[in-house]
Amino acid sequence: MTSQQPPLWRRALAELIGTCLLVAVVVGSGIAAQQLSPNDVGLQLLENSTATVLGLTVLILVFGPVSGGHFNPVVSAADWFLGRRHGTGLNLTELGTYAVAQVAGAIGGSVLANVMFDLGTSISTKDRTTPGHLVAEAVATAGLVLLIFSLARTNRGLLAAPAVGAYIGAAYWFTSSTSFANPAVTIGRIFTDTFAGIAPVSVPGFILAQIAGAALGLGLLLALFPAAGSAADDVVVPHRAKETA
């Protein structure tokens, strides 16, 4: 028996479909929440966050064994950064391929959600750029990176699906931005003028805050787990498939 990762095209397909479905869950549940609870924003957020927690957990379980279930360019970039000294994780070609697949999938997810609810695809007008939102995105992304890579380093990568789902669900509520924590998802949510949308003018600030948060999360990770890069192949889910030689 030999142990190797699936070919890049299969991993890219998993990232594209997984990110597409993730954004469809986020946007679609936001639309449903608006329709079901039109006069209660708190209940809308509860409905949206609950669907996201469950959907994200399931998607990581489904696609994680193929691609790692990143669905997030900052997670993929952190995987490359940590693994480059240890010969683990993504290389630059794989990182670029993952990022393109994730962004394309995220845009497709918004379009899909709009279609499912008989809405036309339109550019969001929801401005989310405030200092509080940007700090929230940095905090949310730092926590996400620290969580994912600390689980991998301590041989608990198989807990990533429920742990990441739970963290994002909690961060919906303890951050003012509702925890996008993902540049691809942020770009994808431009293409829906609904509950989960974000105006294009807000996107650059969000992405910069997410990058800063990822850097902070990596700094904390290396302070706590200096050899974290050795486990980069187990992010988010161990994905080395055993095949018969």
Rank of each mutant, 00 (worst) to 15 (best):
D79N: 14
H70E: 11
F71L: 12
L59H: 01
L8I: 13
V26W: 03
A14D: 03
A12T: 13
G42C: 07
L56K: 14
G28T: 08
N72G: 10
Q34Y: 04
T52R: 03
G96D: 04
H70G: 04
S76T: 13
S3K: 12
L22A: 06
N39I: 04
V41Q: 02
H70F: 09
V25D: 03
N72T: 12
Y98G: 03
G89E: 09
L8F: 12
L95T: 00
G28E: 03
T52S: 06
A12L: 11
G89R: 13
L43M: 15
N48H: 15
S29C: 04
G68S: 12
D40F: 15
V74C: 13
T93I: 12
V41D: 06
G89H: 05
L13N: 07
F71A: 11
V74G: 08
T57I: 06
G18P: 05
E47D: 11
V26N: 09
P6E: 03
L36K: 08
T88N: 01
L16S: 05
A51R: 01
S49N: 00
L21H: 01
V26H: 09
L61F: 12
L59M: 01
F63I: 12
G89S: 14
A14M: 11
N91R: 00
I17K: 08
L22M: 15
G69C: 07
L95P: 03
V66P: 06
V25H: 10
R84D: 07
Q34A: 10
G83K: 01
L45Y: 04
P6Y: 11
L16T: 07
I31A: 01
V41P: 00
L36D: 01
E94Q: 13
N48K: 05
N39V: 08
I31P: 10
A51K: 02
W9P: 07
N91A: 01
G55N: 13
S29H: 11
Q34I: 01
S49C: 07
V41F: 02
P65T: 12
L36E: 04
S49T: 09
C20S: 11
S67W: 02
L43R: 15
V41Y: 05
F81D: 02
V27C: 09
R11W: 06
T57G: 09
A12W: 02
G87W: 05
T93G: 08
L59Y: 05
T52V: 12
P38L: 08
T93S: 10
V53K: 00
L45C: 07
N72W: 14
L61R: 12
P6R: 14
G68Q: 11
A78L: 06
V74S: 04
G96P: 04
C20K: 05
Y98K: 07
E15G: 12
V27T: 12
A77F: 14
G64R: 00
H86P: 05
S3R: 11
L95M: 05
L21V: 12
I60Q: 05
V75E: 00
N72A: 13
V41C: 06
G96Y: 04
A24Y: 03
L45R: 02
G87H: 04
L46E: 04
I31L: 07
T50D: 02
L22Q: 07
S3W: 05
G28I: 10
A24L: 06
L54V: 15
W80D: 01
V62E: 07
G68H: 03
I31M: 11
S67N: 05
Y98Q: 09
D40E: 13
L90Q: 00
F71G: 09
